[in-house]
């Protein structure tokens, strides 16, 4: 396509489609984002710093970060396994299992939230089992992590699955003929190939978990310093009409989200260089 750059436009509708695209994009995305930028520029720097580094806010970063990280790691391991099972094995019910992966996308987060919470309170179906062992699930960080595992699992599976499907079996065959064991060939041949996809899935799950609100807010209990996540803190500032604090904390969250996406992009481009042998 690149070589045809200077070609005259034969297909009609450029002006119209560009016009509608830019108009809607401006109204829905660009103008609201600009108002965020304009509003943040009015914040005083010292106030910004003192807001985003106050002890309660720092504690909320810690809760959000810890739970999102643990959940994304669990999702990376389990998601890789499920993707592997779905691609490599034939078994009855496989198509149903494949369809089920998307439950977290289809089920409204608030419904998932109340269901998980109601199950895991001390008297609930699942909570009572854990309660016998002295483990509290609902209203603790364990509960938050479970909600985030629920939210994040499709990201990893759907990111690894297509790459695993395309993986040429001849390398594994070659490895096994040369005497490599299955574990060895998994770690030395398959894992390096799917690693970029796994990282991408992990990053998406992690980024989504950091900003997740609906499923977490019910199960978290929302005790300041203990189980209060950052999005909830923004929400409570907004309910007190404290727009300056809400915006300051939101800016930190946005910066964190972009940093995660940036790190992912760097890792992806490095991985593609290694695979194509340029690096």
């Amino acid at each position: 396509m690149k070589k045809k750059r200077k070609q005259r436009r034969v297909i009609p509708g450029f002006g119209l489609s560009l016009g509608i695209t830019v108009t809607l994009l401006s109204l829905i995305v660009v103008i609201p984002l600009c108002s965020l930028v304009v509003f943040s520029s009015q914040l005083s720097f010292s106030e910004f710093i003192s807001t985003v580094t106050s002890p309660r806010v720092l504690a909320s970063y810690r809760v959000s970060f810890q739970t999102a990280l643990v959940a994304a790691l669990i999702n990376a391991v389990v998601g890789l396994m499920i993707a592997w099972v779905l691609v490599r094995y034939q078994f009855p019910g496989k198509r149903i299992m494949d369809g089920l992966i998307e439950v977290p996308f289809a089920l409204p987060t608030a419904v998932a939230g109340i269901s998980l919470t109601h199950m895991t309170v001390d008297s609930g179906w699942v909570g009572s089992i854990f309660h016998k062992f002295g483990i509290e699930v609902a209203y603790t960080r364990i509960g938050i992590t479970i909600a985030l595992v629920f939210i994040g699992i499709p990201f990893v599976v759907r990111s690894v699955q297509p790459v695993l499907e395309k993986l040429d079996p001849q390398y594994e065959e070659a490895a096994s003929m040369l005497g490599a064991g299955r574990t060895y060939s998994f770690f030395r041949i398959i894992l390096p190939e799917i690693f970029p996809a796994l990282v991408a899935g992990f990053t998406m799950a992690f980024a989504r978990s950091l900003g997740e609100y609906g499923s977490v807010v019910f199960i978290a209990g929302n005790t300041p310093f203990e189980t209060e996540i950052t999005p909830l803190l923004i929400m409570s500032q907004l309910q007190e009409y404290d727009y300056a604090s809400a915006t300051s904390i939101a800016l930190v969250m946005l910066a964190a989200a972009f940093l995660i996406l940036f790190v992912n992009a760097v890792l992806q481009s490095r991985a593609s260089k290694i695979v194509s042998g340029i690096g």
Binding site: P32, L33, S35, L36, F39, L210, G211, E212, Y213, G214, P231, I234, M235, L238, Y243, A246, T247, A250, M253, L254, A257
Partner: peptide, 12 residues
């Protein structure tokens, strides 16, 4: 963008 931030930018 986190849903909460999406709401916030419209409030602003």
């Amino acid at each position: 963008v986190s849903p909460i931030i999406a709401g916030l930018i419209y409030v602003l």
